[in-house]
Nucleic acid binder design. Structure first.
Length: 581
RNA sequence: GCCUCUUUAGCUUAGUGGUAAAGCAGCGGUUUCGUAAACCGCAGACGCCAGUUCGAUUCUGGCAAGAGGCUCCA
């Protein structure tokens, strides 16, 4: 049995059920997708989630009638007549006719649809419990926001009832790990109505993790010879006009008004244009290159309200951004160095990934800056670099930045979901637009090449990804609190504070240790520690006082025995320093 | 921005055309405790603005925020 065919067939069954219940609904399109299928309709009155049960029941009722799909090639006239009340089908037929393809109609049960085929042979034999309608949403006709919004009904469908159940369980698991929920539960960040949507407020714990992410990126940048700079949050429109961002992204930038001048200012949505001005601040010799600049500044983008979501899509965020200005003969080495750092980072974070080579869409050249020859050169260069390094990649047309091709790293989290994180981008365009120069061996003025890069991408978004990846249980080096010290009763509170001091003094690394000296039973304090996902709990009482030890509890492992304070300090230091996962 | 839906205390939830119940968290007290929830008490909420109504947390409309999608993502 071909699952994709079954899913496609089920979308026909969905349409049949909908038409049975809502005779005025106009069916449009309904393909199979990764986890099931959907079908888009124009309804004359609103349909909501609560109607899904009825539609699903009708699907099961009609299922036995879907014994076979009978296909028939018909004339354009016949098809036009059949769908005379459905402008969507008419529009689809325009496309089919234009391509010179035959028009085929498929019938199953009493439902006939315009379709090119690819169905299950006999749908009536599938388990009626192996599919379900999952949710409803709006979707623009043909994916264009200028078009009418249709109602999309999504269904899940798998080979068996068990596989469907497994998928539903996975969704439940993902919900438990949702960074928006855990972020609040663990006291990492909140949103405030007074502050605004897409503008998270990081509590001390969230800020600690954010700084740990940025600190690691900084360390990797330092090792590559990048130097950190600091540039203004707002800049004249002229800067973005020169870079090309103004023309392309003006509507997505926050405008700032001065009370005294008419000049247009914008909050910066990215760092690259400012970095060109760091480069341009001096005359550069070929010997000075590469000039490597890093920046962790806050960025602002005026995202549409409906696009904002948790930490994954924000209006204020930062990037671990780097710009390398170099000669053409230095590209390969710089690129390789960046790729190494990025791969090292992903290994440290324990994330699997694949590489996407994001190229220009040759049919929409007007959406990109720069000459054809430049694009051909830079795209070929990138391909060669990946090939020489023996790194497998997938090409993606139309995913390039407007100024050049990108190599994007797509990471997979522990639930198999994909996130675009790191990126390396070759840019021959922006240095030209800003008239950047260096003097070569012969005293001639030449234009440097700019390599844009990000390691974790946005630290804030990466925080969200990490929360979900680890289900909130961060590795020690990222944990907002490394350990709690738990006195067995109030009598040992002073001992606990002294032990904390001793632990801090014995450790070569600054430890984030909290003494839990509130009046609760030990059992309760342990429970609180487990729920807060604290990596280590150190218990002290009479016995430990005599021996200068901690009774150690490790997250996920429970009681792992008694250890000297000095030994604990040593292994904490080692585990943090090595960024063990 | 668009479509559908949601909004009761810090969190999770109950409930009603006559202003609301609980658990956890918080605060006060008692207990001084050895590996995932001691006991008693106190305080705390109907997102905002209009409309309908004798009366609205409940019905209607608008706004805001959120969710699932669509579109977009330098």
């Amino acid at each position: 049995m071909n699952l994709e065919h079954t899913r496609h067939s089920l979308s026909h069954l969905l349409a049949a059920a909908v038409l049975d219940l809502y005779p005025n609904a106009k069916p449009t399109l309904g393909p199979a997708i990764e986890t099931g299928f959907y079908y888009d309709f124009e309804f004359s009155s609103p349909v909501g989630e609560e109607d899904l049960k009825t539609i699903e029941a009708k699907m099961r009722e009609l299922l036995p009638t879907f014994k076979e799909f009978v296909g028939k090639e018909v004339s354009e006239q016949e098809a036009r007549e059949y769908f005379k009340d459905n402008p969507y089908k008419q529009e689809l037929m325009d496309g089919i006719v234009q391509d010179g393809s035959p028009i085929t109609l498929y019938t199953a049960g009493s439902f006939t649809d315009l379709c090119r085929g690819g169905h299950a042979e006999n749908l009536s034999t599938i388990d009626p419990e192996s599919f379900t309608l999952s949710h409803i949403s709006g979707a623009y006709w043909r994916g264009d926001e200028k078009n009418i919004m249709l109602t999309r009904i999504y269904g899940l469908a798998f080979e068996t009832k068990e596989n469907l159940q497994a998928h539903l369980t996975m969704i439940e698991e993902a919900k438990k790990r949702d960074h928006r929920k855990l972020g609040k539960d663990l006291g990492l960040f909140v949103f405030s109505d007074l502050i605004g949507p897409g503008l998270p407020v990081y509590a001390p714990k969230g800020t600690t993790v954010l700084r740990a992410i940025q600190g690691y990126s900084k360390e990797l940048r330092d090792a590559m010879g990048y130097q950190e700079v600091h540039t203004p949050q707002m800049n004249k429109a002229d800067l973005f006009k020169t870079s090309g961002h103004y023309e392309k992204y003006r509507e997505d930038m926050f405008r700032v008004h001065s009370n005294y001048t008419e000049e247009e200012y914008y909050l910066k949505p990215m760092n690259c244009p400012q970095h060109t001005q760091v480069y341009a601040s001096q005359t550069r010799s070929y010997r000075d290159l590469p000039v490597r600049i890093a920046d962790f500044a806050n960025l602002y983008r005026d995202e549409k309200p409906g696009e904002l979501s948790g930490l994954t899509r924000l209006r204020a965020f930062s990037q671990d951004d780097g710009h390398c200005f170099c000669r053409e003969d230095q590209i390969q080495e710089e690129f390789a160095k960046l790729l190494d750092s990025i791969r090292k980072a992903m290994e440290t974070y324990g994330m699997n990934y694949w590489i996407r080579l994001s190229l220009r869409d040759e049919e929409k050249k007007d959406q990109y800056l720069g000459e054809d020859a430049t694009w051909e050169k830079s795209q070929a260069l990138m391909k060669n670099l990946l090939k020489e390094q023996g790194i497998p990649y997938k090409e993606a047309l139309g995913e390039a930045a407007f100024y050049g091709p990108k190599m994007d790293l797509i990471a997979k989290d522990s639930l198999g979901r994909e996130w675009q994180l790191s990126t390396i981008q070759l840019d021959f365009t922006m240095p030209e637009r800003f008239n950047l120069e260096y003097v070569d061996e012969e005293g001639k003025r030449r234009t440097p090449i700019m390599i844009h890069s990000a390691i974790a991408g946005s630290a804030e978004r990466f925080l969200g990804v990490l929360i979900e990846h680890h289900a909130g249980a961060f590795p020690l080096w990222l944990s907002p609190e490394h350990a709690w010290i738990l006195p067995v009763s109030d009598k040992f509170n002073e001992l606990a504070h002294n032990a904390a001091k001793a632990l801090r003094e014995a450790s070569a690394t600054a430890l984030r240790v909290v003494v839990r000296d509130h009046s609760e039973t030990l059992g309760k304090k342990i429970r609180e520690g487990e729920q807060a996902k604290i990596p280590y709990l150190f218990i002290v009482g009479e016995k430990e006082e005599k021996e200068g030890t901690f009774a150690v509890r490790k997250r996920g492992k429970g009681d792992i025995g008694t250890m000297k304070i000095e030994a604990v300090a040593a292994f904490l230091h080692e585990e943090i320093k090595s960024r063990a996962s």
